[in-house]
Design a protein around this nucleic acid. Structure first.
Ligand SMILES: [Zn+2]
Length: 183
DNA sequence: ATTTTCAAT
């Protein structure tokens, strides 16, 4: 991913009308975490401005995971950094996937909270996803840096936090905690 | 073009 794509989409004070999702996979073996770099990558949604049916980033992500056919006798952790939290429909798809694939754990780090769905269904969607075993958290400075280092063509430049990153992250974190605690 | 959330208006 190039530097501008990262900055435009992951800045937690922005309002981009598109979504990027970066993913990485580790195999868990006892206490060991073995990175599987061949499964590292990122996807973005297909918007209304592009030909064909629109499709959210999460659904492309699920398509990728399914194509890997990860060994059911092993245990894997999927980590993803996503610029907007999943909508209700996507949380349902992810929840079903986790229920059907107990050998896979999912940890979602989100830059911003997507609040287009009506609040009732959004809450139940994220809560159900959490209940299915997913960890859902708001990206902190450390998470933005990890995403930068792992996915951005940073040309050896260190991650530069933007003004207000921490404050915004804390606000969103409180908001997400309230959503996940409610039900 | 504006407002601004995987657009909608
Ligand atoms: Zn969605």
């Amino acid at each position: 991913m190039d530097e501008n794509t990262f900055t435009e989409n992951f800045n937690n004070q922005g309002w981009p009308s598109k979504t990027f999702l970066c993913y990485m996979v580790e195999r868990l073996d006892g206490d060991a975490e073995i990175p599987l770099d061949e499964y590292k990558g990122f996807v973005r949604n297909k918007g209304r401005d592009q030909p064909g049916e629109p499709c959210h980033a999460e659904l492309y992500f699920l398509e990728q995971i399914r194509s890997w056919n990860l060994d059911r006798n092993q245990h894997y952790r999927l980590t993803c950094f996503i610029s907007w939290t999943p909508c209700y429909n996507c949380t349902q798809k992810l929840t079903t996937f986790l229920e059907e694939n107990r050998h896979i754990s999912l940890h979602i780090f989100a830059s911003r909270i997507y609040t287009v769905d009506d609040s009732g269904s959004r809450q139940s969607g994220l809560c159900a996803l959490q209940a299915a075993g997913a960890r859902i958290t708001i990206m902190t400075s450390k998470d933005f840096e990890r995403c930068w280092v792992t996915f951005v063509d940073h040309k050896e430049k260190p991650f530069q936090p933007w003004e207000g990153l921490e404050v915004k992250s804390q606000e969103l974190c409180d908001e997400l905690q309230a959503i996940l605690r409610d039900q």
